[in-house]
Each structure stands twice: as C-alpha cells, then as structure tokens.
Amino acid sequence: MDTRSAREEILGKVRDALHRTAGASVPPVPVTARVPPRPGGPLEAEITQLLAEIEKLTGHTRRLASRAVLASALAELVKTEGVTKATLWTTPDLIAWDVAGTLRALGVTLVSPQADKQLVAGCELGVTGADAALPETGTLLLRAAPERPRVVSLLPRVHLAIFTPAVVRPDLHQAFAENKDAGYSVLVTGPSRTADIELTLTLGVHGPKTLYAWVMDTP
C-alpha cells in the first residue's frame, strides 16, 4: 500500500503545528539532555559486581580459570539441566574453546541455529558469547550476525553465555557506541520473567528460564 500521501499529510501537520518549514535545520540535542556515564572501576571489582548482579536476577555465574575448568563446568551443566540437544554461536571464541566438541563428547546433539525453528526450539541449551557486559545492571549485550544468530539466546530453555573480561564496559553509553551499527542487538538482564499473575514472580515465560553467565579468565 502506497502511503506517500499519508506521509506528506502527516509531515505537513507536524510542521504546521511546530511552525517549521520543510528542510528546516535541527539544532544539536541540548547538552542538558546528556548525563555522564557511570565511571568504571578496576576490572576485578567490575567483574565481581557484574556477577553479583546477575546472581541477584537468579542467573548462575562462574569464573573459569582454564579450558579444563570450562569442560568440567559444561559437563555439570549438561547433567543438571538434562541437556540432550544444544545450539551454538560459531564465533571465534567459542570455536577456540571448542565448546561444540566438548558438548558432542558429552553426548549432546548439536543443532544448527539455521535449522528449522521447531528443531532449534527443541534444544534445551543455547550457547552464546557476549559483546558487552555491564556491571551496574548485570546485563549482557548480544549482537546478531550469521555466526551469532538471535534464536540461540532466545528459544532454548537454558541460555549459557561465555565471555572474557575484555567485554566488560562501564555503562550503556560505551556498549551502545560500539554496537549501534548492528542490525540487531539485545540487552539480556537475567532470565525471562513476569509478575503478571498476582504480582508473583515467575521465570521462563517465553525466553530462557535459566541463564548461566561464565567469565573465561584465560582466553
């Protein structure tokens, strides 16, 4: 449906109401519309705060000292969560840590994120990295691309994000500055939740019910 005449009419009404002419310039956003970002702190303190905030949201956090620790952590998770099928990002970090191989060795079937959505939805576990981690709110920023599809952090019941301290950012300002060019990104702050029934908090409405956030200390 061609809505060009609607466009002209709406823009015309807006301009008339504001006493602006077509093509009139726009002054810069006032400096009083800006608030300085939260200052970061020493990285260790930032990571401690990040993990504490995620735990408050009932996320499960770990620090991994080595790939061996990662492997045993994965074994534990697979057992705890009863994982039979998993879908993964194929980003350099996850490949370098051979998450796929470790899961396969644990008997988990890997499903490609590009597979039929019913199959992907049938996975208990989705494994991603994170493009930014924000200590103040316990938030992870995930951007989408072919090797890092959206559905991995969305459809499975369990979402595991493994990332390094290098992605920690003091505040949304920096995280956005680096990622606003993405066609898609999402801020994940804890597992899916609602209080729609009698204001009682329940988890796992539509998004993942459980969130694991692991910091890989030695890349």
Partner: peptide, 23 residues
C-alpha cells in the same frame, strides 16, 4: 517496575542483513 533494566531490551534496525541470520 523498579527494575534497573527489563529482562530484554531489543534493538531492531531493519530485517536481518544477510543470509544465515535468523529472523
């Protein structure tokens, strides 16, 4: 709701830009 951030804040700039992206 008195949360620092809601669980999911999504930023959608057009449809997926390449084959192989889900969406």
């Amino acid at each position: 709701t008195g949360q620092k951030l809601s669980c999911y804040t999504q930023f959608i700039s057009g449809p997926p830009r390449s084959e192989g992206e889900t969406g």
